[in-house]
Design a binder for these strands. Sequence first.
RNA 1: GCCAACGUAGCUCAGAGGUAGAGCAGCUGUUUCGUAAACAGCAGGUCACAGGUUCAAUUCCUGUCGUUGGCUCCA
Length: 618
Amino acid sequence: MRVRRQSLQPDRPTLRRSAPATADIAGRYQTRSHPMSAQQPGAEASSDLDDLRYRMRHSAAHVMAEAVIKLFPEAQIAIGPPTEDGFYYDFEVSRPFTPDDLEQIDSLMRETIKADRPFSGVTLSRDAALERFDDQKFKVELITDLPEDEEITVWSHESWEDLCAGRHADSTGQIGAFKLLSVAGAYWRGDESREMLQRIYGTAWENKKELDAYLERIEEAERRDHRRLGRELDLFFFDPIAPASPFFLPKGTVILNELNAYVKDLYVKYGYQEVTTPQIFNTDLWKQSGHYDNYIENMYMMNVDEREYGVKPMNCPAAAMLYAANTHSYRELPIRYADHGRLHRYERSGVTHGLMRVRTFTQDDAHIFATLDQIAGEVNSFIEMLDEAYAVLGFGEIRLALSLRPEKRVGTDEMWDRAEAALSEVLEASGRQYGAEEGEGAFYGPKIDFFVPDALGREWQLGTVQLDFSLPERFDLEYAAEDGSLQRPVVIHRAMLGSVERFLGVLIEHTAGALPIWLSPVQATVIPIADRHVPFGEGVVEKLRSAGVRADVDAGNDRMNAKIRAAQGRKTPYMLVVGDREQEANQVAVRERSGGNLGAVDIDDFVARVVEEIATRA
RNA sequence: GCCAACGUAGCUCAGAGGUAGAGCAGCUGUUUCGUAAACAGCAGGUCACAGGUUCAAUUCCUGUCGUUGGCUCCA
């Protein structure tokens, strides 16, 4: 499956996409370990199979390019690597591909595969290669950019040859079952300022059974799409009147509130103080923070009484102001200010996506003001808290990335050395896997991001912890050190859920909407068998509500079977059937969302059981 | 922002140059039922918005807005 990585900085959601398995022109197979990606079962992911899939997908890309050139002789071909679940190839063509084109390309490919042409590779000199591809400008550019000593190879399957460092199938017949999936625009070399190419995505598997299984996984993922479930479960919706801004219905709001309440419980345990800050600030603040210069395009600005204001896109400057409102001693540090303020960012059209990337959202955001020596302890404590919460929420597939200093940055090298060392020491000590990514840090400091995949395997950044040297400078933050000197604290931005909206989106896709009971908008629904049982059912609801359980009664005149079906559709954890027998014995017949029938239980026993489950966030 | 597709009832969709249809949901009535869909009826739409072509546009064209899939971006 295609994998995207989306990062959410404490002040902003970010998305980076990279093909998980890509081959550059030299054919180097670059992959990253994705222990979490929702892929095929691990059992069949033997390295031999991976190798076969890599080679046949890479070969399928070549075969596809050949077909495209047959249909579009003038096409300029770019690159066509295998991906984690298939392949793509980029072309520059006179007009975009249509579904009809794809069908023709598909049948030409099948002919080539049937012909079972063997693959072979040859090494060429630079000049020979340039001559061979002199009518293909992208290939010429690739060859020209190759290092002098790079070996240049051409791979062919008789009827077609392509600049490529290879690893191909033995012959085209080895390409198993494939399917062309979609056409999409993509920039040449991923550069917004270069040509917009037409990319055809395909998937390929060793046999039809695997292909069908893959397509079935995609369909299943679509059934778990949080946008669809959000509608079906009456959690939230979107309206063009407020683009990319969710309206949360009562049920969705219950979930958000429960998530926030949980985070705030953890704040007590981990020593945070919650603060509340304004929504709109005079632009002087954004000029001081640097956001005015760098991010005004993404801010909502307004003029009132001839003064300019900006709606906050992040909480950091307000946190800095809170800190600066008093003098501080080293004895007070670290200070941890949590701020779940509402943020607004004008995201460019085309980048928004359901709850995952929106224009208004909240973060479980906090800023820690600390000494350099306290960094490791604070980061450690944060990761501990995150682990605790993600375990409760059932997120097992987390990828950690340590993002190191970018070229454009603030702060001295010595500070970066210390900060990066602090983060990697924490990670090493934790013994967990992580990838170090050069140049991916924020301009103000290095960070650790926590990625979790959605139903389609697209990764989204949820948690993050970032060190910041810039903010304390810009706001002239200080503390009195032990020796009486004034020192600069470091700021640690951290968000555990990240954007609460995005977190909910990922959570819905992980659970297919069947949220744990403590997060369920309705925790138990009473199903009277006949009208005469409704009053008794209402009494049951009253008892549950008195105990703090969100319960309702389905008093409609549907049959019991239909009510159960409806409640299953709403993913209600418990269905309590009440009829003559239950009323007689003051019991409820308990049915679980999973289908289990627990039989008749005394009402008080059931209440106690549910209250316990909710309290322990089981 | 870029490439492309799409926008018809609350939801999922069908439809055609002559002012619209289904299923589900909703409402009403009948039924009062034992663990995943009782039956019948009713109601519900300026066919996203704005221009244009045409005797006639929801249908064709253009633009705008929105959404979807990618690309790029993401303090």
